[in-house]
């Protein structure tokens, strides 16, 4: 299995999907009516007069979730190479289990800490 045999079909699939998307945009641009004016091109707010800009401050909770995701996904990314080489690693014996246990201990500890500190609560009661 050469690199080209993996990459070319993947690019072809990407090309197919882009063709579908581009075709839809192209067809939609020319077949439908195009009469964009007045109140139609205002942001939709249930028929009430538009007030203010949508790009305002948003709740800090969303950022918190994103930061938590980064932390945990990084740890998952660290675990993945270990999992792929798992069969060779456990042939080494207890040392693998010790090191993995050390890592997972910190993983669980951090999860527990975040649970207790209320970082995982969406609504603090």
């Amino acid at each position: 299995m050469t690199g080209a045999e993996t990459l070319l079909p993947l690019l072809a699939m990407l090309g197919f999907a882009s063709l579908v998307a581009g075709g839809a945009l192209f067809v939609g641009r020319f077949l439908g009516p195009r009469n964009l004016e007045g109140v139609k091109i205002q942001p939709y707010e249930c028929g009430v007069t538009v007030s203010g800009n949508a790009r305002d401050k948003v709740s800090v909770k969303y950022y918190l979730i994103a930061i938590l995701f980064l932390l945990f996904d990084l740890e998952v990314a660290f675990l993945l190479p270990l999992a792929i080489a798992w069969d060779e690693m456990i042939a080494l014996g207890w040392i693998t289990m010790g090191l993995t246990g050390f890592f997972l201990f910190y993983f669980v500890l951090s999860l527990w800490f975040e649970y207790r500190s209320g970082a995982l609560e969406w609504e603090k009661s």
């Binding site: 995701f69 990314a77 675990l79």
Partner: peptide, 20 residues
């Protein structure tokens, strides 16, 4: 966005279990 990334972590850990 926050819904998708919240469940992404669980899927990632599932992936590790499956690979093992």
């Amino acid at each position: 966005g926050s819904q998708m990334i919240s469940y992404e972590v669980a899927i990632g850990l599932c992936l590790v279990s499956l690979v093992v």
